[in-house]
Design a protein around this nucleic acid. Structure first.
Lengths: 205, 205
DNA sequence: GCTAAAATAGAATGATCGTTCGAACTAGAA
DNA sequence: TTCTAGTTCGAACGATCATTCTATTTTAGC
């Protein structure tokens, strides 16, 4: 927050401390929510004093923003990776199982839902989330467009946008499903998802 | 909370007060989250003193539980209604547009996401949510089973369960989509959803 | 080893939290 | 009217909140 550090090792050290705080904060936020978790809890989890946290973050809101940003950055790189594969349609269907399992991970899902709920009421967090979604959505739309064109379908952009939302809703909804029905038959869900994604890809235009 | 009231008008009055508190609390929870909203805020919104709230609810947790219960009760009756219609398949596809619009309502979606996030960490709320979902899920599975059987498909129960999760994830995911991409083309999404639901109903078993 | 600066701890701040409590008020029964 | 019991308020409680400040320890350059 203050003047530039003198050596690069100091920079690294500061970066590591920041990361340490963010990891601890993510755990606390998972367990108690953004507003339920206190700086005292986070500082204890990070193994440092409460006051010291303010050397790395202006305030609690800044920690929340950093957590949100970090979480979404990961998603952006993920969708970009999918797009870089060779045979996109096969890759998509192949990755369904992985996507299902990842979104059902309760720890991950809890934090992501917390972020979504916060985005609905906190304009700053909402901006971060919407900006990241724009990138992911664009990447997913590109992927869908490529597959559909390769299959000889002539879709207008609105149709592609609609399909994008369908696929996104499917996987994001799974985070809620994992919480509401933790005992679900995962293999059956994977089969259902695979078939549904396949169906969207070959949907008549 | 204490001994039975003497007249039925007193009972009604107490019920109205409870409802008044719950409505005010729902608004506060929507805007600030379960832990971000204070009893002081809720009492101000409900037009009564903070202390008085404790005549109707044991504590804040009880208010949260009541809100969650009320929200889910509505969903249970909704799925039951769908099931009572005549031609189920047509009714389902016809109700897609309504379902999409309802889940995109930002105020509703925000509170529901807050509930899901709370269910992921608060065991009491989690129990309420899971129990309600069991009912809704069963009703939706019954509906799907009926349509599939009428179409001559022979599905095992796991397949029906998988399809149920797909449909549930679709619509619940839409709540997140509405927050992450508020400017989406709703008509295109409705078309995509309708086609996807149709696809699930005629999916090969 | 000395010194200056950064890292860190921990106490202190005022605000606000959820909750309790006792007094004042209100309305129906007698 | 008087009594009684539920309604309602608002002050008060101790705990905890996010944040600030000061003092101390650690580190790096000389």
């Amino acid at each position: 927050m203050s003047a530039e550090p003198r050596s690069s090792s100091e920079q690294q050290r500061a970066l590591a401390r920041r990361e340490q705080i963010l990891c601890a904060a993510a755990n606390c936020f998972r367990n108690h929510g953004f507003h339920g978790a206190s700086i005292a809890q986070i500082s204890k989890a990070a193994g440092m004093s409460a006051g010291h946290i303010y050397h790395y973050f202006d305030n609690k809101e800044a920690i929340i923003a950093a957590i949100v940003e970090r979480d979404l950055e990961y998603l952006v790189t993920l969708t970009a990776e999918l797009r870089a594969t060779g045979n996109i349609r096969d890759a998509m269907i192949e990755h369904v199982a992985e996507g299902v399992r990842k979104n059902l991970e309760p720890a991950e899902a809890g934090l992501k839902l917390e972020i979504a709920a916060e985005a609905a009421r906190n304009p700053h967090v909402g901006d971060i989330v919407r900006r990241a979604d724009e990138v992911c959505r664009g990447s997913l739309a590109d992927t869908l467009r490529a597959v559909r064109q390769a299959d000889g379908h002539a879709d207008d952009e609105a149709t592609i946008a609609g399909m994008t939302e369908v696929i996104a809703a499917l996987f994001e909804g799974l985070m809620i499903r994992g919480i509401r029905n933790p005992g679900m038959d995962r293999d059956a869900v994977i089969r259902g998802f695979r078939e549904t994604v396949r169906g969207v890809l070959k949907q008549p235009s």
